[in-house]
């Protein structure tokens, strides 16, 4: 069981309080009807399968209820960082060495 830092509660807590919510930074277009079929397919279905740092979303389900973003190394299964929804992607080079 992993430990996850909730950026809203500012506490590091057991994974059992959280639920996984898929890849992060996939933006739903402001006007979906303007999207081409290819763009909509990309939005709906196309996901990374990263070996290494992966941008992903979690929800502090049994806690503050917030969705937030995380960078987790899929090799070490360690979280490099977590940050609030809406904040920009952190610079990976600055996170290296934290795994």
């Amino acid at each position: 069981m992993l430990l996850i830092h909730c950026p809203y509660c500012d506490e590091t807590l057991p994974e059992a309080e959280f639920t996984y919510a898929g890849q992060a930074h996939i933006v739903r277009a402001r006007t979906p009807s303007d999207q081409t079929d290819a763009e909509w397919e990309e939005f709906l279905f196309i996901r990374e399968n990263v070996r290494g740092p992966h941008f992903e979303r979690w929800r502090h389900f049994h806690g503050c209820g917030r969705y937030f973003n995380a960078v987790r190394d899929t090799v070490s299964d360690r979280f490099l960082t977590t940050y609030k929804a809406g904040e920009p992607r952190p610079d990976l080079s600055e996170l290296e060495g934290r795994a």
């Binding site: 919510a21 739903r28 979303r57 929800r59 389900f61 917030r66 969705y67």
Partner: peptide, 13 residues
């Protein structure tokens, strides 16, 4: 509920 919160929190905050 999860889906609604997701859209509300992350798409339409």
């Amino acid at each position: 509920m999860n889906m609604m919160e997701d859209y509300l929190q992350t798409e339409w905050p």
